[in-house]
């Protein structure tokens, strides 16, 4: 396993090239071009802010001395939404990535694991491009709070999320080759997963805390801890749940191991099945 991962280092130029190709090609031919990387999350933010901040405002409240109301709620939402988009689009794309690049698999000797990696990294770049917007929002619109030094802790959250997402994407991309139904299952699963992760509501919301069963479910969901890590480092400016982060990392590493193992076992079947 370690040996195989070392081999991956050899392909870093290939990975970098493919990621930049994906980024370049993504908005080629559109009028706004690269601005879409910023515009997409902003528009999504607008929709969610209206729905959950104005139409259904119950999820807001006062938590950790910060009012999660009005514009603050939008910022809170954005903090969780950005990493979620990275996760969800990586998962959805990984269900297709081997098919879309079937030509590379079938016609060229090609290290196939590069494809899901490329996919997760491409989506990560989109995510990272969204972060400056978040920071600007906090600095200019944040009421009664601002960034703290905790913000420099966020790369840890990125690392944990990367390992976790990568493991799942290896699994999904390999299995979708044999079970194409997975694509549709995944789309629905991700919708459920989105609402079962504290993104549109804070984990500490009293209405959430009332329901013990739901709290347990949230605690078992690794994405809860990953998203919370962003919310704490950017929004609340503290990290009370720091113990949960290493545990999530261990879970992520385990998933990565299993995901890669299955991907590797199925690798030879891709040429014929894609």
């Amino acid at each position: 396993m370690i040996k195989k991962l070392k081999e991956l280092l050899k392909y870093r130029q290939l990975i970098v090239t493919l990621v930049s190709r994906e980024l370049k090609a993504r908005y080629r031919g559109t009028v706004l071009g690269f601005l879409w990387s910023f515009a997409n999350p902003l528009l999504l933010l607008l929709v969610y802010s209206v729905v959950f901040g104005v139409i259904l405002p119950q999820s807001s409240g006062r938590i950790e001395d910060v009012h999660i109301k009005g514009i603050n709620y939008s910022i809170f939402l954005f903090t969780g939404l950005l990493p979620w988009i990275w996760f969800a689009s990586s998962m959805l794309d990984s269900a297709n990535v081997l098919f879309v690049h079937g030509n590379l698999i079938k016609k060229i000797r090609f290290p196939i694991e590069v494809l899901p990696i490329m996919n997760v990294l491409t989506n990560m770049v989109h995510f990272l491009l969204g972060l400056p917007i978040l920071v600007l929002f906090i600095l200019f619109f944040g009421k009664d709070f601002s960034l703290t030094w905790w913000v420099f802790f966020f790369p840890v959250a990125v690392l944990v999320q990367f390992v976790f997402t990568m493991g799942l994407c290896f699994l999904v991309s390999a299995l979708t080759v044999h079970f194409r139904d997975l694509r549709d299952i995944l789309a629905n699963l991700l919708t459920l997963w989105f609402f079962a992760t504290p993104i549109i509501y804070p984990f500490m919301n009293p209405m959430v805390q009332e329901k013990k069963g739901f709290v347990t479910a949230l605690l078992l969901n690794p994405m809860t801890h990953i998203i919370e890590a962003y919310q704490y480092t950017f929004f609340f400016g503290s990290l009370p749940h720091w113990k949960k982060i290493p545990v999530t990392l261990v879970v992520g590493l385990f998933l990565f191991y299993v995901g890669y193992l299955i991907f590797d076992r199925l690798r030879d079947t891709f040429v014929e099945e894609v």
Partner: peptide, 8 residues
């Protein structure tokens, strides 16, 4: 040209 990307 198996790996060509048409858009670029």
């Amino acid at each position: 040209g198996a790996g060509f990307h048409p858009e670029i």
